[in-house]
Design a protein around this nucleic acid. Structure first.
Lengths: 114, 114
DNA sequence: CTGTTACTTAGCCATTCGGTTAAGTTTCAG
DNA sequence: CTGAAACTTAACCGAATGGCTAAGTAACAG
């Protein structure tokens, strides 16, 4: 349960680029090689590779090389940590709806208003 | 329904920093001034301000100035676009579970195996 | 062996990022 | 009016990002 904040950093960072999100989408249809992943983008191959390395080091994606082809595939579970972070906040925000400090804030406003 | 990709970029980017996420957490307990938000961090004020500007330009947070105090507060709805992005992918990934290409992949494996 | 395919590595470049200090500005308190 | 408080602006810094080209390696295909 030890949330590694740096892992979240890298995950969010990886997701903060349109091209990278595009590659994730492509991988949603199944594994793909570097060249296949590069195909939709107007980028040089080494640029694509850097994006893929960012994705891999974030844990969102895995790769293995067989022969001269490196195949990437999604780690679908990986998004869970992001989901978890969001869920935690939302839960907390709802909780503070009916908390004492909120109650006090409301009633003190009432007192001033009246 | 027009998903602005740049908005998602800025949202994920804003979330990719631990300090910024910390400020969001603080704002989960209610509005706060710049100084209050800065207090837990070992950072110069201008640095905190930059973080807050990143958060604000991502839409996760709003601020208004009254007197010499600028007060920040959460836009709790803002996380929805991130949630939505994640939900979309997960839905897509499940769908491809029982799609033709998957079926073909499975049966061709069978054919080879047998 | 000889290409060609499929990556890889290396180096460069401009911009952005996260951080700083120093010097404003504006407001409120006295 | 004077000073402290609460930002704000400006200028700078080193590292990371996103992009490139050029050159290298590794593995099939013939």
């Amino acid at each position: 349960m030890l949330e590694e904040p740096l892992a979240l950093d890298r995950m969010f960072q990886a997701l903060s680029d349109q091209s990278r999100r595009g590659m994730i989408d492509r991988l949603g249809n199944g594994p793909a090689s570097v060249t296949e992943l590069a195909q939709p983008f107007a980028m040089a191959l080494p640029t694509v590779m850097k994006h893929l390395q960012v994705l891999e080091s974030s844990g969102l994606v895995l790769s293995e090389k067989s022969g001269r082809v490196r195949t990437y595939h999604l780690r679908k579970e990986a998004l869970a940590s992001v989901e978890h972070w969001i869920a935690e906040r939302k839960a907390g925000w709802n909780r503070s709806f009916d908390r004492l400090d909120q109650f006090l804030a409301d009633t003190s406003t009432e007192t001033i208003t009246e």
